[in-house]
């Protein structure tokens, strides 16, 4: 059975592998700090604190294993009339956004993203349900995509 997430006429563009770092650093801070605190407390105060250390540690391990696969699963493709974005390993999703439906395009980059040379492109339609964001693009590619989307959107602009 063919997967509905692999349309046959589409070649996927991958996002930068540096996105793994960008996603793991916050996770390491949020989960690593409680884990370390838990370990220290369990050694000094009471062995019960191993539970406090264990839960974030397991979550962190899971994240470290999952994130590289998640990043590899993100893909986008520009077709003649629409943009395709797919993501997810366990829970997969695919979004088709027609260029004529785009209301505006956001390019965002946080401090960590900038240091790693990454940017996020987000497309907005008139629907709040459209979850069309491409994280982990090199800034040049993000700018190129933004301009390309804007010009294509203009050419095919429709009302609502």
């Amino acid at each position: 059975m063919t997967s509905p997430f692999e349309p046959h006429d589409v070649t996927w563009n991958r996002v930068s592998p540096r996105l793994v770092t960008a996603m793991l650093v916050p996770a390491a801070v949020w989960l690593g700090v409680p884990a370390v605190v838990g370990v220290v407390l369990s050694l000094t105060v009471s062995p019960w604190f191993w539970f406090l250390a264990g839960v974030p540690a397991v979550l962190l391990l899971w994240t470290v294993l999952l994130v590289p696969r998640q990043v590899r699963a993100i893909g986008y493709a520009e077709r003649d009339d629409d943009l395709l974005i797919r993501k997810g390993v366990m829970f997969r999703s695919l979004v088709v956004v027609p260029y004529g439906r785009m209301q505006y395009v956001d390019v965002e980059a946080g401090p960590l993203d900038r240091r790693l040379g990454l940017a996020k492109v987000q497309l907005h339609t008139a629907s709040v349900g459209t979850d069309a964001q491409i994280p982990g693009l090199p800034p040049d590619e993000a700018a190129r995509l933004r301009d390309r989307l804007a010009s294509r959107g203009e050419a095919r602009l429709a009302g609502l």
């Binding site: 509905p4 997430f5 366990m90 829970f91 997969r92 999703s93 695919l94 979004v95 088709v96 956004v97 027609p98 439906r101 339609t125 008139a126 629907s127 349900g129 459209t130 979850d131 069309a132």
Partner: peptide, 9 residues
């Protein structure tokens, strides 16, 4: 139609 989505758990 604004955009289309497909999801699979």
């Amino acid at each position: 139609t604004q955009s289309l989505g497909l999801s699979q758990g």
